[in-house]
């Protein structure tokens, strides 16, 4: 990596946030880790982005896992019909 690419990366927030996302859901190379580290050292805005991004992932995960998942219910009428069609099929077999 020459000085020129380093300088480019050091100021490129688009690339840095891309790497922040890639790092969280997959993996980034050693070189990419270095690039990101250099960028974050000098960029408070992207450091905020990273903090928030990590929290958002956790919130999204929480949102769709127990115990919140149990809050939604099918109405009884629909369930009765559903049970009816299952029983009917079972009788046939």
């Amino acid at each position: 990596m020459n000085d020129n690419t380093l300088r480019k990366i050091a100021y490129n927030c688009k690339k840095a946030t891309f790497l922040i996302e890639k790092k969280q859901v997959g993996s980034i190379t050693v070189r990419e880790k270095l690039e990101l580290k250099i960028h974050l050292a000098g960029c408070a805005v992207c450091r905020t982005f990273e903090q928030q991004s990590i929290v958002i992932n956790k919130m999204v995960h929480d949102l769709f896992h127990e115990p919140k998942l149990n809050e939604l219910k099918l109405d009884d009428d629909f369930k009765r019909k559903l049970q009816g069609s299952i029983d009917e099929k079972l009788d046939k077999n």
């Binding site: 100021y11 490129n12 927030c13 805005v45 905020t48 903090q51 928030q52 958002i56 919130m59």
Partner: peptide, 15 residues
């Protein structure tokens, strides 16, 4: 590749 000024993330309690 800089953040556009109006789009720069700001702290809003989700850090």
């Amino acid at each position: 590749g800089h953040w556009k000024v109006q789009h720069q993330p700001q702290a809003f309690g989700l850090e």
